[in-house]
């Protein structure tokens, strides 16, 4: 499977990773080998086969519409890298779309 550096960079961007040039080379190789390994799947006879959702074919259970979660902001924000005045902080986001 031929994988270009451009494809690898595009995927890294989608996945929010930033491989350095050495790693990028390594990834081109490794991902190429893995995709080649995946190519076997094309041999499978899967016409008319439904993709599997849950091994036991069970349905979703649901919960009642009740508020049972207490306010644990202090606990949750104690483990935050940067939270002040109850808000998580990030570098400025330019547009709020």
């Amino acid at each position: 499977m031929d994988l270009t550096a451009e494809t690898v960079r595009g995927i890294a961007k989608l996945a929010r990773l930033r491989p350095n040039p050495d790693e990028e080379q390594r990834l081109i190789q490794d991902l190429g080998a893995i995709l080649e390994f995946f190519a076997q799947l094309s041999e499978a006879e899967v016409d008319g086969i439904e993709p599997m959702a849950h091994p036991l074919e069970v349905d979703q259970r649901m919960r009642e519409d009740e508020v049972t979660e207490p306010d644990r902001r202090e606990d949750y924000q104690e483990i935050a890298p940067d939270a002040r005045e109850g808000l998580y902080r990030v570098p400025a986001v330019l547009d709020s779309d």
Partner: peptide
């Protein structure tokens, strides 16, 4: 993410994203 994840995890994230 690049710093926090090791090589194999990053590899699988890449493959899965693809």
């Amino acid at each position: 993410r690049e710093e926090g994840f090791g090589a194999e995890v990053r590899r699988r994230i890449m493959i899965g994203t693809y």
